[in-house]
């Protein structure tokens, strides 16, 4: 906790120093940015963008988790299928998915579905990879114990495989959370008329530094807070 506070203080100091160095045409100082963000949060139109992004992100995250687990868990249970699929999934993880954007737009058109699809293709892969790895790494001793106790297949899955793989699965969800947020925002930056990503892109076009900084700050704070919470939970599971 103390470390976290110190880190935030250092980052704020660095931000202020960068402002002194680069000037007001490049970035706005911390206090002004926070005040402007507070002002934005008091206006109606900003909430329209915020809610739009929130809705798209929530659906994208839910789809990433459901589909990712749907792909990852069965693959983890089947050793040979996992051996085939793993390099494919890892390659998919490494692809700069932003280049698939035109294809996604062609399929879904401009609007909410395209953002959701874009967030989902970012988030689904890490969830699947970690779920697969988690199930594969379940200790053989546990599985042999399950057989010795004559547990049925469902019981083995529910009482042995799921709890044993849970920490790893959760780590995947944590990364899926971050990536589907980035994906949703990237989706909004191009083919969209609404949402924080659109606001950001619009502000870039107009060189509107205060808006760029305020939206960036809001996104960073949101992502960092949730990610820190998920991480704390993750650590507890891994213990």
């Amino acid at each position: 906790m103390r470390n976290g506070c110190m880190l935030i203080a250092v980052l704020l100091a660095g931000w202020q120093a960068l402002f002194q160095f680069a000037g007001a045409h490049a970035l706005s100082p911390p206090i002004d940015t926070m005040l402007f963000l507070a002002h934005l949060l008091g206006t109606g139109p900003f909430w329209v963008h915020l809610l739009e992004t929130g809705r798209a992100f929530a659906v994208a995250l839910a789809l990433s988790i459901v589909l990712g687990l749907g792909i990852g868990l069965p693959l983890g249970l089947h050793k040979y299928a996992a051996e085939i699929a793993e390099p494919l999934l890892v390659s998919a993880y490494a692809v700069p998915k932003i280049v698939l954007y035109p294809i996604v737009l062609t399929i879904f058109g401009i609007g909410l579905p395209a953002k959701i699809a874009f967030g989902t293709i970012h988030g689904i892969v890490p969830v699947a990879i970690f779920a697969m790895a988690g199930v594969r790494q379940v200790s053989p001793v546990l599985l042999r114990t399950a057989r010795a106790m004559r547990l049925s297949r469902t019981e083995t899955l529910r009482c042995i495989v799921w709890p044993a793989a849970l920490p790893e699965i959760f780590s995947g969800l944590r990364i899926g959370f971050s990536l589907s947020l980035i994906g949703t925002l990237l989706g909004e930056m191009f083919g969209s008329q609404q949402g924080l990503g659109y606001l950001l892109m619009h502000a870039i076009g107009l060189q509107n530094v205060p808006v760029i900084m305020a939206v960036t700050l809001l996104l960073t704070m949101f992502a960092a807070t949730f990610s820190a919470m998920l991480l704390a939970w993750d650590r507890r599971l891994h213990r």
Binding site: A26, S178, L179, L185, L200, A203, I212, T216
Partner: peptide
């Protein structure tokens, strides 16, 4: 730990 949750592209205009 939280680094990859930050949308780095948001800093690109800067």
């Amino acid at each position: 730990a939280t680094y990859y949750a930050i949308p780095v592209y948001a800093f690109y205009p800067l």
